[in-house]
Amino acid sequence: MASPRTHRTIRAAAVDDAAAVQELYGFGDVQEFTDRLADRRTAPGTTHYVAERDGQVVAAFAVTALGRLRPGGRRRLMLHEIKLRPSLRGAGVAEDILDWLAASRAVGTETELLALAPLDQQPAGFAEFGLTESHRAFKRPVPDGGART
């Protein structure tokens, strides 16, 4: 990337990160975050990560391995649930996550990456990293009061 950034450590999220992750989301119950981080069955194939700077969690995100049936198809990962500390938006955190994915998961060389972003938003780091729009995502929401998973 063009400008130097603060070094951040990226690691798998642990149960002890629940309060920090809840703070990033800005809502929810710390116990529910704890339960979800403790129970790997909550999201099969998904690993939740945190990015830290000076021991403080500054972002959380999830990476899910997607199965491929297509012969000759490259491995594919989906990057989603990206939550950044609001005061650090635009400070290179997303770019650090993308750099980490390239270095640790061979994204861009051996592995394809699908990244979910809110409608009408493409973080600047996506373009810098070479991500282009290729798919459209559709969801079927669960009405308020529906079962939580």
Rank of each mutant, 00 (worst) to 15 (best):
G55C: 11
A115D: 02
L131Y: 06
R89E: 14
L66T: 10
I97C: 05
T109I: 14
A94R: 00
R74Y: 13
E32C: 01
E128N: 15
A20Y: 07
S3K: 13
A14R: 14
T132W: 12
R85G: 01
T6P: 05
P141D: 15
P86W: 03
G108D: 04
V93C: 04
D99Y: 10
P71W: 08
L88I: 06
A43Q: 10
P4H: 06
A65H: 06
P118T: 11
R5T: 10
T42W: 13
A19H: 12
Y49H: 08
Q22Y: 04
G67F: 00
V58E: 03
L88T: 08
G108Y: 07
P71Q: 12
A103E: 15
L116Y: 04
T42A: 12
T34M: 03
L114I: 10
G73D: 05
E133G: 02
V30Y: 07
V21Q: 04
P118K: 02
A91I: 09
T149R: 15
A147C: 07
R11A: 01
P4L: 05
G90N: 01
F126Y: 13
G108I: 12
G73R: 07
L113P: 12
A2W: 01
Y49K: 07
A13Q: 08
T149H: 13
R140N: 01
T109N: 02
A103W: 00
E23D: 10
L84W: 01
A51D: 14
M1F: 12
L37G: 11
I10N: 00
T149S: 15
A137W: 01
E32Y: 10
G92R: 05
D39I: 11
V63P: 01
A117L: 06
L119P: 07
T47N: 11
D39A: 10
R36G: 01
P118H: 03
S104D: 03
Q22R: 12
V21Y: 10
L114M: 13
R105T: 02
A12W: 00
E95T: 14
V57I: 13
R40T: 14
R36C: 10
V15K: 02
R89I: 07
I82P: 09
H135G: 06
Q121G: 04
R85F: 04
Y49R: 11
Q56C: 14
D16N: 14
D54Y: 00
R70D: 00
G55F: 11
I10F: 01
L79S: 03
L37Q: 10
P44T: 00
V93Q: 03
S134V: 03
E52V: 04
R36I: 12
A94P: 03
A43I: 00
Y49M: 02
S3V: 11
P86T: 06
T34L: 02
M1A: 15
R136D: 03
A18R: 06
L84Y: 06
V50D: 03
R105I: 01
T9Y: 01
A59V: 00
E95G: 14
V58D: 00
A91P: 04
